[in-house]
Computed example of a mutant assay.
Amino acid sequence: MNLHVVALFKFNENYLMEAVELFQTLVRETRKEEGCLQYDLIEDKDNKGTFFMVELWESEQHMNCHNGQDHLLDFRRDVSKILESSTQVYKGFKTL
């Protein structure tokens, strides 16, 4: 069963360029992973500095493998220094 994930990131406007650079590497490398069906970064149109990562994984196991990848661990380490607030992550299975 496919797993849907949405992660919410909020940055101070002073760090937007740095955040986008970190996201570029993360997205590029994650899209190469086995089981990654979708991995898209969306910027909120009304709230500057707010981003959503919209993910679709072939299975929960594939997403769990993603969580141990070096590019994600590096991203988490680097992005934690510039986040305005804690990242919120929502996971679920399609119901309709």
Rank of each mutant, 00 (worst) to 15 (best):
E60M: 05
E55P: 00
L41T: 08
E58N: 06
I82G: 02
Q38K: 13
S59T: 11
V20Q: 13
K10G: 00
T25Y: 12
E60R: 06
T50Y: 04
N64S: 12
L72T: 04
G49I: 04
Y39N: 04
L41H: 07
F51W: 07
F51C: 10
R76A: 14
G35I: 03
K81C: 07
N64M: 11
L37R: 12
D70A: 11
E34P: 05
D44V: 01
D74F: 10
D44G: 01
K48T: 14
L83V: 11
C36Q: 05
L73G: 00
E21D: 14
V79H: 06
T87H: 02
T50K: 12
R31L: 11
E55M: 01
D70Q: 13
A19Q: 01
D46Q: 12
C36W: 03
D44R: 05
D40S: 08
E13Y: 05
E29T: 07
I82W: 03
F75V: 01
G35P: 01
E33V: 03
Q24S: 13
E29I: 06
E33L: 06
V79W: 08
S59K: 03
Q61N: 13
D74W: 06
K81P: 00
R28D: 13
S59G: 04
R76E: 13
Q61I: 14
G68I: 08
R76V: 05
E55T: 01
D44P: 00
D40L: 08
N12T: 09
L37S: 07
C36P: 04
I42T: 10
K32F: 07
F11R: 03
M53F: 11
D70E: 15
V20P: 00
F75A: 01
S85I: 10
R76P: 05
R28P: 02
T25P: 08
H71G: 12
N64L: 12
I82F: 02
S86P: 14
C36D: 06
W57A: 06
N14Y: 10
M53P: 08
Y39M: 02
S59F: 01
F52D: 06
V79I: 14
K32S: 12
K10R: 13
L26M: 09
D46Y: 09
K10P: 01
E43F: 00
Q24Y: 06
L72G: 06
V79T: 11
K45P: 07
E34S: 15
L72V: 08
N14M: 11
E60A: 07
R76Y: 09
K10C: 09
H71Y: 13
C36Y: 02
D70C: 04
R76M: 14
V27N: 05
S80L: 04
K81V: 10
E84R: 12
H66Y: 13
F51Q: 10
T25C: 10
K32L: 14
I82L: 03
K81Q: 14
C36F: 02
N67C: 12
H66C: 05
D40N: 09
G35V: 04
Q61A: 15
R31E: 12
N67V: 07
F52E: 06
